[in-house]
Amino acid sequence: MSEPYEKLAELGLKLPEVVPPVAAYVPALRSGNHVYVSGQLPMADGKLLATGKVGAEISAEQAKELAARCALNGLAALEWLVGLDKVVRIVKVVGFVASAPGFTGQPGVINGASELFGAVFGEAGKHARSAVGVGELPLGSPVEVELIAEVRD
């Protein structure tokens, strides 16, 4: 077993099935040495884990956990396309937070995803990042996370 799989096991996590697209796109696409993972929602067993705005119906701590689930779903898409053992590094993460008026804690919410990537890939999990507050997300999701990973052949 290679390191990312061992790290997931140590964390007590199992890769889920790839979340099927909810529109006209693919879960992940490789171009050269990069894999672009489409925005991932906090889905489990085909269901959205929560709906609502962060800072209103959803707490920042709950949203951080949901962002980690988005990241786990992103790892599942990477596994599906190339395998986690081919990941050289996580290059960029973009997180979207459906925010109630006045909520400004988007970076802390998206730390849920960033911390998971760091735990799984160590130094190679450190990445550039944007955390953006938005009015609405697909299906009423509180968070969405997309990523770009560098991979080897």
Rank of each mutant, 00 (worst) to 15 (best):
P21E: 04
E6R: 15
E57M: 10
E65A: 15
P27V: 05
R89E: 05
Q40V: 08
P16V: 09
T104C: 01
A56P: 09
H34L: 14
P21H: 02
V120M: 05
F103T: 02
E136Y: 08
E115C: 01
G133W: 00
N33K: 15
L147Y: 00
A28P: 08
R69P: 08
A119E: 11
G112Q: 06
L139T: 02
A100W: 07
F96T: 01
A76P: 10
Q40D: 05
L11Y: 12
D45L: 14
M1D: 02
V19F: 03
K92P: 00
L8C: 14
P138C: 09
F117A: 04
A63H: 12
G122R: 03
L8P: 14
E79Q: 15
A67V: 09
V87W: 06
V18K: 07
V18Q: 08
G83Q: 05
G95M: 05
G102V: 00
R89M: 07
L11T: 11
K126W: 02
D45G: 15
G55D: 09
A100F: 08
L41G: 10
E6Q: 15
E115D: 12
E115W: 01
S38F: 00
G83K: 06
G12C: 13
V35I: 10
Q106F: 02
K47H: 15
S99H: 03
V91T: 00
A56C: 03
C70D: 06
L75Y: 03
Y25P: 04
R129M: 07
F117P: 07
A131R: 04
K14T: 15
K126T: 02
G95Y: 03
L139E: 10
A23L: 03
K47W: 11
A60K: 12
A50G: 10
Q40M: 14
E10N: 12
V134E: 07
A60E: 14
P20A: 07
L8H: 13
V145K: 07
V97C: 04
L72W: 13
L29T: 13
K92G: 00
P138G: 07
L84M: 06
V134N: 11
L139I: 02
G55V: 04
N33R: 15
G140F: 01
K64E: 12
L8Y: 11
E3S: 13
H34M: 13
F121C: 01
P138R: 06
E115R: 08
L78N: 08
E3Q: 14
N73G: 14
F117Y: 15
V91F: 04
E115I: 04
E123Y: 03
P107Q: 00
P16N: 08
E79P: 08
R30N: 05
K14H: 08
G39D: 02
V26M: 07
K53V: 04
V22L: 13
V91D: 09
M43C: 07
P20L: 06
